[in-house]
Amino acid sequence: MIRFNRDVRRRIKDRVMVVLALVCVALALIPLGSILFTVIVRGSSVINVDFFTQIQPTPCSPTPGVVCPQGGIANAIIGTFLLLGLSSAIGIPLGLLAGIYLAEYGRGPLVFAVRFFADVMTGLPSIVMGLFIFAAFQLLFPGFVFSAIAGSLALAVIVVPFVARTSEESLRLVPGSIREAALALGVPKYRVTLRVVLSSAREGIVTGALLAMARIGGETAPLIMTALGNSFVSTRLDQPIQAMPLVIFNFATSPYANWNALAWGTALLLVLIMLGLSIAARLLLRRRFRERRIGA
């Protein structure tokens, strides 16, 4: 009968553990739901034409007889896209090239070291990358510490190791037989890589690039010490520039009602962009896997 009792206890324990695992899932979903809900509810009230076309208003809290201007974040939207575009233009090709090196010429201790430390670098705090560019500009171009180019470089430093690893992984999924078939046609190896291997791995590479952009689009810490922020529309690379994450940070902690509201609106827009990038990346990845199954 002792055995019987033990069995009952074991079965109860089994049930309890299943329930606990479910509770854990719920515990993760509650904050996610709460964040999305709050951002949507509080942010949607300021999403209108002004939001996209105006720049930030004078700070104001409503008092009897005073109507606060809502304003918008046109300067931040332009700034964010400029920073994203420039850092991607610098970081993605460089990362892709490094990924090609890892996947196509990948042997020996040097390659191992590059791969390992690229992995390690993807785990380094983004504020360190910002501080690095801040400090480097401080040494080399002290006049341009707070500029769009410094901000872009700080974000590019985050992109390079990430894209290097994701593109390496996708290139490795291309079967060796494809490379051999192209080589056997009498095509130089670099053209095999550029024209055949890269195109076979294109979904994976694009996915990696999208995820990299999703990663840097919401970055704030590196921008505080590089792009700095700008109350006006600017597209000059040598001048400070506004970005959506900076708007959220600066306006969320301010005491003014109209600025707080803009922070929520910006958060909504930023979350939508980031989720859109992540979801696009996922869908691409799924398509690639489905295609591979049919091909096999």
Partner: peptide, 18 residues
């Protein structure tokens, strides 16, 4: 869905936190 938690920018966590 769990990975969406990673897609939410840090500064939005801060805003929600406040």
């Amino acid at each position: 869905v769990v990975e969406l938690l990673a897609a939410v920018p840090s500064v939005v966590y801060g805003l929600w936190g406040i």
